[in-house]
């Protein structure tokens, strides 16, 4: 059986929890089993926020992350908190703005926050841009399933913007500076 643990970690207001939920829904649409769990602070903006997604071919005994395969970091605070916890076999994706200069070579950087700002003028679609990157980088879910899951989850008046954010994220892969 295959079990893939993904953690998306950022700041409150970046849409990290919503993004994790969408990824899990896309995994189910792709025919996998999936769980999504979230950790957030008491605040509605700012503070640390994280989504853990487990995707597996078999029913999932333990629904939370235990050994992260892929960590996607979207804020400096999240980098400080979660990067040290990543095991030797875990792969790191990180937003360019919050990656320290000393970042080791196995991590891959993408301008996720800047891309979200370019698409929406703010931070709210950061998580969806990250999903686009994740999909293109790992193929952990099918691209079409992810588009369907995004369209089904976000408010209808923001569907177009979110699908643009997703495509922009997918477009970052291949042209990354690592």
């Amino acid at each position: 059986m295959s079990r893939n643990e993904i953690r998306i970690a950022g700041a409150g207001g970046q849409g990290v929890v919503t993004a994790g939920r969408i990824l899990a829904e896309a995994a189910i649409l792709s025919g996998s089993h999936a769980t999504h769990s979230q950790v957030y602070g008491p605040q509605s903006r700012g503070g640390a926020s994280r989504s853990d997604i487990v995707i597996a071919t078999e029913p999932i005994a333990f629904p939370l992350a235990d050994s992260i395969d892929l960590l996607f970091i979207l804020s400096s605070d999240a980098f400080a908190k979660y990067e040290p916890e990543l095991g030797p076999n875990g792969h790191l994706l990180v937003d360019t703005r919050c990656a320290p200069e000393s970042l080791n070579g196995s991590a891959t950087q993408y301008p996720v926050v800047d891309t979200a700002r370019a698409v929406s003028g703010g931070q709210l679609v950061t998580g969806v841009v990250a999903l686009g990157v994740l999909q293109a980088h790992t193929q952990c879910v099918e691209a079409e399933a992810l588009r369907q899951a995004v369209a089904a989850r976000v408010p209808v008046q923001h569907t177009k913007m979110n699908l643009e954010a997703l495509s922009a994220g997918m477009g970052l892969v291949g042209g990354e500076s690592s």
Partner: peptide
Amino acid sequence: EVIGHTRES
């Protein structure tokens, strides 16, 4: 809280 907030298929 984990059971309350975790999403599963």
